[in-house]
């Protein structure tokens, strides 16, 4: 999130406080004192993690506090998990397996590496799944467990 703050004491706190109040986790704050805008405001770049549903409420609150929000860039998919699948991965319709995750709207398969040792042998796949948050990732993994069970695949999850 890019903000512009007035050059007077207490402005940064004013901008940061609502983020914690809305349950956000601040990752970094860059305060560009040396790059004052023509209007005499100080650009500040804040990176934080927050539940998607709470973002709008936060933005409204910041605006009503008099903070100028220049732009909000969302990197929607924050959680990343690696899993391994073993079994007849291709013949049990790998496209369907991926679609089932992608169609959730909150998670997607970002990377796939498959190893096929022989025609009748079990294949192995490494799948990288991204999701919008921890809760969503849990749901995506549960979905994948069901798919693996249905297709008789062994799913290996991280600890």
């Amino acid at each position: 999130m890019d903000l512009e703050l007035k050059d007077m004491p207490g402005q940064l706190v004013l901008a940061l406080q609502p983020i914690s109040e809305f349950g956000g986790n601040i990752v970094s704050v860059i305060h560009h004192r040396d790059k004052k805008t023509p209007r005499g405001l100080i650009p500040v770049q804040i990176t934080f993690e927050i539940d998607e549903g709470k973002l709008e409420g936060l933005i409204n609150r910041m605006k009503s506090d008099g903070v100028t929000i220049v732009q909000v860039g969302e990197d929607r998919l924050l959680e990343r998990v690696v899993v391994i699948l073993i079994g007849h991965i291709i013949h049990s319709d790998i496209r369907d397996t991926i679609d089932r995750i992608d169609s959730t709207g909150y998670a997607e398969v970002k990377d796939l590496a498959v190893s096929m040792p022989g025609v009748d042998q079990h294949s192995a796949a490494r799948m990288v799944i991204n999701a919008t948050g921890k809760k969503e990732m849990k749901k995506a993994i549960q979905l994948l467990r069901n798919v693996a069970h249905e297709k008789n695949l062994l799913l290996i999850e991280p600890i």
Binding site: I84, I86, G87, S115, P117, R126, L154, P158, I159
Partner: peptide, 24 residues
């Protein structure tokens, strides 16, 4: 779930991404 279905290929894919597979 035991370890009888684990293949060397699965271990290699895991290793390439910085993981080992253990029975936990």
């Amino acid at each position: 779930t035991g370890i009888t279905q684990i293949t060397p290929e699965a271990l290699k894919l895991a290793s390439d991404d910085g993981y080992v597979i253990k029975l936990i």
